[in-house]
């Protein structure tokens, strides 16, 4: 009974985890370079709109490729949109929190305006989402095969691949070493000849691409429709970033925790064991745990040291 339940829930939990994971990973790049990105919510919303709009426009022509075109377009366009945040924070030395709030507000307004303009209703629907596939051979592995490799989305594997790549990039390559230095001690990076401004621009750009991809992934796997809100997913990704202590594998754990807990809360009404618990407890559970985790981990926070500080060459 319990085992069956887990088998049933798992694909949904993963599907919910993945958009959070990639968005949070985007936040990781930005914040490890020293730029706070609370605009993740807005960037994700933008990704949802671009993904839904592009897919709905091209799916008549390319029924199977449309979802991939939509994901790519969302990543590229939202990366460009994130340049606004980079310009404000890096070039103009603006307050990074305020700039993030502005990004959220602009995204909320622009997407709804454009959606109304193009469809009249404010909602953008897509007909075909990402198909679920079962991976040959791997799905035959006992337990794991059924949990991970049955009824899975190709996008899930793409994003897990990006996670592995991102870890490699951050910890093994020259780019990663320099990016992390910019977030910890930008003066050290500068005096070693690293262009702090350029690194931060690239990091915010990557963060936009990831969040855009996250938004579009949510559209093609879970919702199937853009309806003018990201419903706090971007903020949840931000919480996962902190909960995961600014580390890629920590983020994976945190987002999976959110994904699983949210899924449990969503389906609780139809599962007798869970239906006994009042819905409000299940729904608030992940957030309460996050608050507790943040309180407990605040003493030993691994936040990048220079986070939130505009880089000022003259200040030493």
């Amino acid at each position: 009974m319990m085992v069956d339940l887990i088998y049933q829930l798992f694909p949904y939990a993963i599907a919910f985890t993945i958009p959070l994971l990639i968005t949070s990973l985007g936040g990781l790049f930005s914040e490890r370079s020293g730029v706070i990105n609370i605009g993740l919510e807005g960037l994700m919303l933008m990704g949802m709109f671009v993904g839904a709009f592009v897919i709905s426009s091209v799916e008549a022509l390319y029924p199977t490729a449309a979802v991939w075109i939509g994901l790519l377009a969302a990543a590229v366009i939202v990366a460009l949109f994130a340049l606004l945040h980079a310009f404000a924070c890096v070039t103009l030395n603006a307050n990074q929190v305020i700039s993030g709030i502005a990004i959220n507000m602009i995204a909320g307004a622009v997407t709804v305006y454009l959606a109304r303009f193009f469809t009249g209703s404010g909602n953008v629907q897509i007909i075909r989402g990402m198909p679920r596939i079962t991976i040959a051979y791997l799905s035959d592995i006992p337990i794991l095969g059924q949990l991970l490799f049955t009824h899975t989305y190709a996008s899930t594997w793409l994003i897990l691949l990006i996670l592995a790549l991102a870890t490699f990039l951050l910890y093994k390559t020259r780019f990663g070493l320099r990016l992390r230095a910019c977030g910890e001690q930008p003066h050290a990076a500068d005096s070693a000849g690293v262009n702090v401004y350029l690194m931060r621009y690239m990091a915010v750009l990557i963060s936009g691409a990831c969040a855009g991809l996250g938004g579009a992934t949510f559209i093609v796997t879970l919702s199937g429709e853009f309806n003018g809100t990201a419903a706090g997913l971007g903020f949840l990704a931000l919480a996962a970033l902190i909960f995961g202590q600014w580390k890629p594998w920590g983020i994976l754990g945190a987002t999976f925790f959110f994904g699983f807990a949210t899924t449990v809360a969503n389906v609780s009404q139809v599962i007798p064991v869970l239906a006994q618990i009042p819905g409000i407890y299940l729904k608030t559970f992940p957030y309460v745990v996050t608050l507790l985790a943040l309180i407990l981990s605040s003493k030993s926070s691994q936040a990048p040291k220079a986070i939130g500080e505009p880089y000022d060459k003259g200040k030493r």
Partner: peptide
């Protein structure tokens, strides 16, 4: 006067920052 070092990097990482030797894409 104020050292320009990244506190959570190793000595080596601090020294090579900016002129990292690279082998097979990795530092």
């Amino acid at each position: 006067q104020h050292f320009k070092l990244v506190h959570n990097f190793t000595v080596t990482e601090n020294i090579i920052l900016g002129i990292e030797p690279v082998k097979a894409l990795m530092v």
